[in-house]
Amino acid sequence: MAKSNKPIVWGLFAAGGTISAFVAPVMILITGLLVPLGVFGEDAMSYERMTAFLSHWIVKIGLLGIVILTLWHAAHRLRITAHDFGIRNDSTIAMGVYGFAGLFSVIALFAVLAI
């Protein structure tokens, strides 16, 4: 009987679930719906405005926190959901979902730091 190492990812899952519950709906609303539909004007997300916005280190850290934690939240939940859908190959699933979250976390980190 060994203690589980689940707490590592569960901590990220819980943190990501909380932060995405607060901010994901409005983020999707703004970046995915209102801006593309032109509600905030033509240049609401222009290159100049976005790079200026992302030049603040608080914005960088905040955005990275949201993106990375939400990715890990989703990865862990999807691992459990795969089991719920009857997929029993847990180690492969775990590698796949955590790999996806890890890869995009690194890409996000790299891109945000380079902007």
Binding site: S20, A24, M27, I28, T31, G32, I66, V67, T70, L71, H73, A74, A75, R77, L78, T81, F100, A101, F104, I107, A108, A111
Partner: peptide
Amino acid sequence: TCIFLALYMAGLT
């Protein structure tokens, strides 16, 4: 819901 959150965050990345 996690699938949509993940896809959105990946798109944002």
